[in-house]
Design a binder for these strands. Structure first.
Lengths: 190, 190
DNA sequence: CCTACCGATCGGTAGG
DNA sequence: CCTACCGATCGGTAGG
């Protein structure tokens, strides 16, 4: 029971931290900002987290976990390589520009604020997600749908996907699904 | 004469700041770190710059100016659309991963530390560079070399290019030129 | 989770 | 460009 309550409060903190770290940056956000955002005293933060760095790691870990879950769910029951790829693209964009936007932007832009140990742990989580992509791209290459150098291709795709946070505006004329389809068009051969 | 000396010292500071802001982040870098890097007292920094934020802006402005100069030089005398595109790609990678690496990474990753006024000024500089690309891509599209939606394509390309800082290692087996050619291969139609 | 607090450090300034 | 310094703020802790 107490564990459940702890978890909720912890999640609230991670959520608030995602927002603050993303809009002001990690270093610029003070523990006082964060405490105020969830309505507690700054000293009380350290009942939930050992230190400020641990909060950053938790935000990033949540970001990777979220986008991985989205991808796994999107692939469920799908067998056609092209459709798998389409769903991975759309899923990535949906998480990045919608549901897990803040945590994922923190993941992308606060890398240098992580300790090397924390970095290793996040890399491990990220690798699982990248493996998912690699497998789908390999299938697609076997089917002749994409360029055979899938490792290189994957890096190019990741770059394009992640860059969307720099320019995509949800209130514009292009929906996330439409953007995904356009990207897929550029990725597919011929 | 004094102006020349001032400029040199200023440039030294911008160089040192590029390195420090990139490796530690802007907020984490103190004016004392920076002063020590060029061998002066921390208070003396403010003889050269009004405040810390002005140094960040100077670093970023130098980054954009550098990469624009590289692009303009690379295009000089070239008339064939495909070759123009190849040179833009290679030029971008050369600046980003080599000659102006630090300043450009700061430009990519410290965006949220800029004031809105400084942001506007940097955007203006960046627009000039993007226009260069847009024109070359439009020529290439007219020649049927690339997908006709060049605005979208340009954003995808920028993403792929800028993402290379996350994974490219100069001591690996792939040279920058080779990487450029591979990217061009994915960009070109057919 | 709060109260009360501390040591350290930060960006920046005045006066030369 | 240096010396000497300040007010503000920071992450974190002890004790409850």
């Amino acid at each position: 029971m107490q564990n459940t309550l702890d978890k909720t409060r912890r999640d609230e903190l991670i959520d608030a931290a995602s927002h603050l770290f993303r809009s002001q940056g990690y270093e610029r956000t003070t523990v006082r900002d964060l405490a105020q955002a969830v309505g507690m005293q700054s000293g009380s933060l350290f009942y939930h987290f050992k230190n400020k760095a641990e909060i950053l790691e938790a935000v990033m870990a949540k970001g990777v976990a979220d986008i991985t879950a989205v991808a796994e769910f999107a692939l469920e029951g799908v067998t056609e390589p092209k459709e798998k790829l389409r769903r991975l693209v759309t899923g990535h964009l949906t998480a990045l520009l919608g549901s897990s936007q803040h945590a994922l932007e923190v993941l992308l832009y606060e890398w240098h604020s992580l300790s090397t140990e924390a970095r290793d742990r996040i890399v491990q989580l990220r690798d699982r997600y990248e493996t998912l992509w690699q497998q789908v791209l390999d299938e697609a290459a076997t089917a002749g749908l994409v360029h055979p150098d899938t490792t290189f291709l994957r890096k190019m795709i990741f770059g394009s996907l992640n860059w969307t946070v720099q320019w995509y505006r949800p209130d514009g004329s292009m929906s996330i699904e439409e953007m995904g389809d356009r990207m897929l068009n550029l990725i597919l051969r011929g």
